[in-house]
Simulated assay, not measured.
Amino acid sequence: MTKNLKNQFVGAFCAAMLLFVLAGTAFADQTRGPVTNLPLPRYVSLKASKANVRRGPSLTHRIDWVYTRRSMPLEITAEHGHWRRVRDMEGAGGWVHYSLLSGVRTVVVEQDMLPLTVRPESNTPSVAHLELGVVARLGECNADWCKISSGGYKGWAPKEVLWGVSADELRE
């Protein structure tokens, strides 16, 4: 290989690597909220017992519906100023003012009569059974199980039957 050809190859390789790094940085920036710099999407809960869900991020936008279930988990998918675009477990969404949201993590039970187990294993005793749609507070999570609490009961539930926690999310 001639020296000139080698220099061209090295130059092209360096340019390609620079583009790769810049593209990776741009992708990383897209997964962070422009206002809070927190990950997007992310889960939160409804702080208020009533929250207007609007078409856009301002008070001048039309109210599409009203959330009326305090502590309901929501997924934030976008940020604009003091507004957060959220999505609920049914896929419905809109813009909610950030003051109506809380960082306290909750989940919705997606299996009727879900057994809460003593340990994160299916063959351990149950401490309670939760009905479909129950909102529970989220505790620690390993790869497949999460510790949740509701109605004075605490126990472990399979992550796959909970809405409000990512499949790959680990919590201590």
Rank of each mutant, 00 (worst) to 15 (best):
V21W: 09
R137V: 08
E110I: 06
D64Y: 03
W163C: 13
V44F: 03
G93Q: 02
S45A: 06
K3F: 13
T77Y: 10
A16T: 07
W95I: 02
H129L: 05
R62L: 06
W83C: 08
P125T: 01
T36D: 14
L114I: 11
L162D: 13
A16E: 12
T2W: 07
R105K: 11
P125R: 01
E169L: 09
N4I: 04
R105H: 12
S99Y: 14
E140N: 03
V66G: 02
V108G: 12
H61M: 06
E90D: 15
V165D: 14
A143M: 02
V35W: 04
L162P: 06
F13V: 05
M89R: 08
P120T: 02
T60C: 02
S122I: 08
E131C: 09
W95T: 02
N7S: 11
N123S: 09
A167I: 05
S149Y: 04
K159I: 02
S149V: 00
V10E: 14
S71G: 03
V109L: 13
R87I: 13
A157L: 02
L18D: 05
V107Q: 08
L100W: 09
K159G: 07
M113H: 13
C14P: 00
N123A: 12
I148M: 03
V44H: 00
R137N: 06
T124A: 09
V108D: 14
D112G: 12
G164M: 10
E131Q: 14
G33Y: 01
S58V: 00
T117G: 12
L130H: 05
L40A: 02
W65K: 01
A128Y: 07
T25E: 15
A167N: 07
G133R: 00
A26V: 10
E172V: 12
T36W: 07
R54Y: 01
A51K: 00
P125A: 10
A51H: 02
V53A: 00
E131P: 07
G11C: 08
G151S: 07
G24N: 04
Y67H: 06
E172K: 05
E75I: 03
K159L: 03
H97I: 06
W83A: 10
F27V: 04
A12C: 05
V104Q: 13
K6G: 06
K47P: 01
A78K: 03
A28F: 15
F9G: 01
A23I: 02
R62Q: 10
T31C: 13
K147Q: 11
K147F: 12
H97C: 06
Y43E: 00
R69M: 11
M17V: 13
H129S: 06
R32H: 10
F9Y: 09
M72N: 10
E110A: 12
P125I: 02
F13E: 12
R55A: 13
P39H: 07
L132A: 04
P39R: 02
W145R: 00
W65M: 09
T68A: 15
V96K: 01
A26W: 11
S149M: 02
D144Y: 10
L59V: 04
L22F: 15
K6F: 15
S102Y: 11
N4F: 15
I63R: 01
V66A: 01
K159N: 05
V53L: 04
S49W: 07
F13G: 04
R32M: 13
R55M: 10
H61E: 11
R171Y: 14
Q111Y: 13
N7V: 05
G91P: 07
L74Y: 13
V107P: 11
M1P: 10
L162Y: 11
Y67V: 07
R42L: 05
V10D: 13
L19V: 03
N142T: 01
K147E: 15
